[in-house]
Design a protein around this nucleic acid. Structure first.
Lengths: 114, 114
DNA sequence: TAAACTTATCGCCATAAGACGATGGATCGA
DNA sequence: TCGATCCATCGTCTTATGGCGATAAGTTTA
């Protein structure tokens, strides 16, 4: 069997998360399981594209998939992913506020330079 | 100025983190600031490659950079990144143990099928 | 059983990303 | 000032990624 190290999985998970469509898919699925035909209308991408993105999340063990008749239903496998995304957002917000701080300081020094 | 949304930064941060070399760079820098010439020997990649990776982390606002004489010193800007990586590792470990569980169950059912 | 539906997969193209060596600008030491 | 050191950047190559339409396989419905 394919031996999996934590660091391999780490990169796989992070790669899977580093795409805006896939993040939006996770957000969409945070409301509960959905079949592909419910997902498609919410995204302006071809069916094949969405299917591929779903598969990337599935391969990274982030989504679960079950076939139900002629449909395929996807759902979040482990809500821990949202913790990760929250942490990333938190870092991003810190960055934004630091930028704002720097902006204020710059403005002040420009005003004082008469 | 370039308007930055949280979701843009989110993807930028996650993309910056989704590479084994860059993760190793962060780990390396967790011990404190280091100049490039100290970093290079720890990685079997060309100087230009490492420089580019460092720059990606810098552009994602994950690393800080200061020029000190003829050297450039990099350091972690916000230790929050390690929280993110820890969360990802935690998810990866969950995945691995689930796989191990599934393996045990499979084994058991194979033994019982006589 | 034939038509319609749902979805994964294939083949193709365009763009992005990673790697390298070479170049060049800046700084330090002799 | 001349050579050496440090490091970012450029040009180039190769591989990976994302996007699409077409296809195919399985399911349901008529």
């Amino acid at each position: 069997m394919t031996q999996k190290s934590v660091s391999d999985l780490r990169v796989k998970i992070l790669s899977a998360l580093s795409d805006p469509i896939r993040l939006k898919l996770l957000e969409f699925l945070s409301g509960g399981e959905r079949c592909v035909c419910e997902i498609l209308p919410a995204f302006q991408r071809s069916q094949s594209t969405i299917s591929k993105h779903l598969n990337i999340l599935y391969e990274a063990d982030i989504l679960e998939r079950k076939v139900d008749g002629k449909r395929t239903v996807y759902c979040i496998k482990d809500p821990q992913v949202f913790e990760i995304i929250r942490m990333v957002d938190s870092l991003a917000l810190t960055q934004i506020s630091q930028l704002a701080e720097a902006g204020k300081l710059l403005e002040k020094s420009l005003n004082n330079r008469s």
